[in-house]
Amino acid sequence: MAGKSGSTPATYSPSLSGQKKKRPPVLADSNWVRPDGRTLHQCRPAFLRTGAVNSASGSAYAEFGNTKVIVSVFGPRESKKAMMYSNSGRLNCNVSYATFATHVRGQMPETKDISSMLHKALEGAIILKSFPKTTVDVFALVLESGGSDLPVITTCASLALADAGIMLYDMVTSVSVSCLGKNLLIDPLSEEESYQDGSLMITCMPSRNEVTQMTVTGEWSTPKINEAMQLCIDACSKLGKIMRSCLKEAASITQD
């Protein structure tokens, strides 16, 4: 039928009857109850696995609640012909969303800025001098978008880079926090992100204790920012341990 009528008829996604989505009143002193039953400072359970795509040099799959991401790493391989000679290697990042990733089909966020954020988050951790004249490509596909997409992509990408055997100073982990009234929510869902007053994301190398990227948007007070940063850094170091054990497990399987 797709080819029967030349133009695709206009379609809409049926909405839920009788329920108009309203921002739940968040009073200054009320406590936010998280839709998935977590406590405010609890991250979603993380599932990480390397070697998801066989045709890539390295790859990883990450699942944080409903956020599901695959990252493939290709290279180091020949840079584009148009590129100038470079003594250090290049990093190329691209993020795309599957059409079914979001609740309504095709309402994907702008991926150009996500790609450049990913590039900046990873660049500082890769030993670019170790692959002169060549390019490493990091491609991400978001299969389902369930909130905190960029931190999950960054984390998954660093795992894929490690799987590809690209030299890194350290693993890169990333966690975000949403501010909702007086509450700080770690690892927010997309619903919580849509209600937030402000958001803070930290990308760091946990064993070196270095921050490669930090973004703050919206309304924040200084003590809140300090508290949120501490929350993120603690969560990042825990996530780093999970990633290490995932890599160790993969290595022990290949050895057997």
Binding site: M1, A2, T8, S55, S72, S96, A98, T99, D137, F139
Partner: peptide, 20 residues
């Protein structure tokens, strides 16, 4: 009658031959 629209995608993650 309803309609079925089918699309096949090869994102760059799937193969070294596909580039964004």
């Amino acid at each position: 009658e309803g309609c079925i629209a089918i699309e096949f995608h090869m994102p760059p993650i799937c193969s070294p031959l596909v580039r964004p």
